[in-house]
Design a protein around this nucleic acid. Sequence first.
DNA 1: ACCTGAACACCGTTCAAGT
DNA 2: ACCTGAACACCGTTCAAGT
Lengths: 221, 221
Amino acid sequence: MAAGTRNTERREDALSRERIVGAAVEMLDGSGEGGLTFRALSAQLKTGAGAIYWHVANKSELLVAATEAVLAGATAPEAADETPQEAIRAVGLGLFDAIDAHPWVGTQLARMPAQVAVLRIFERIGRQLQALGVPGPAQFDSASALLNYILGVAGQNAAMAQAVDPGTNRTDFLASVSTGLDPGEFPFTREVAGQLREHDDREQFLAGIDLILAGIAALGG
Amino acid sequence: MAAGTRNTERREDALSRERIVGAAVEMLDGSGEGGLTFRALSAQLKTGAGAIYWHVANKSELLVAATEAVLAGATAPEAADETPQEAIRAVGLGLFDAIDAHPWVGTQLARMPAQVAVLRIFERIGRQLQALGVPGPAQFDSASALLNYILGVAGQNAAMAQAVDPGTNRTDFLASVSTGLDPGEFPFTREVAGQLREHDDREQFLAGIDLILAGIAALGG
DNA sequence: ACCTGAACACCGTTCAAGT
DNA sequence: ACCTGAACACCGTTCAAGT
């Protein structure tokens, strides 16, 4: 019962769904999507591989649960004094930052449709659009546009994090890719790559949201 | 040398990268992402599993090549009489329809960053924005917003196609999901689900593009 | 140069058997 | 009720050996 001095993992008595999901999140954070294995997971939890299946149906369900676990903490607590636009930006940023910290979440959101976590984002966006006064028929299209944009960014960020090895940063990677492009075929891409230095992914994400919000305002009026 | 009467697959003499990629596309179309296997592929090509590795480095490269092969035919031929907005819509629709026919392409685009196919879309969008007169500093953000939106839709469509079994349609699936949601927690989502009947994915996709284009026009001054 | 196919090092998942 | 761990049916990839 006494805690060991240098023993990091405490010997919790029973296996539980929470412990399994927690360990899965840790493994996903530490070694990426390929790092999560029922063998590695059971080794870390000090059980047999099949024990996990008593608490979790399969790997897909485990990934969904891990995504939920991460996103539960990512949804900001709805400040009362913010405008609908600010609220939408906050929802987006919460997701952006969560995926920045856990890139595998981005892949997961893009893979499974109508996941509860995705529906929750959709719901929050939709309510803010209603508060914003977007007319009924346009609400569906507007919420979908915002959600799809956010999921698109999420997916690209996740893909980038997976492809670029942890040492180098994204900007260097993209810059090197674009330098290799044929100037005749890719003039725009190469020109824009020059602005990569003073470029911030997070700011660009927000700029995109503002663009869509401006469009909603323009068409709704 | 004479063609068999009832023999569907002609016995082409040599294995080649093109034949491999072609067979891979067929298998992906027919049995989805999980259906593409080096064993199944080599069986259909009537060779050993390892033979493929002489023409293709690994499965990841094969998927990229298959995506390129499909998208090569999807890029519309740049009509001369269309406005920049129409051209952007056309690029988007070409991609939308290609992914509708080959859902695995959507997943693939979301998975690998800076794929040539993606850069080609980015380039075409960017050039149309220049033609539209979008000021230099805003071009990068605007092109990124459009690309991320398009990729987001692509990913969601792909996920949907993978999750819903071929028999049922998406609308029924989404409707049944939303009916199961707690009305107190998901009022907007449930309300919007009622509009699902008279809803068209393709039209909603275009509505989103128009929303972003309107935002670009509004912010561009 | 190109192909064969057995072998290697893995997977997710199942299931009899234990406590 | 919960856990164990061997076994099953797969994977992608490699590589000696063939032609």
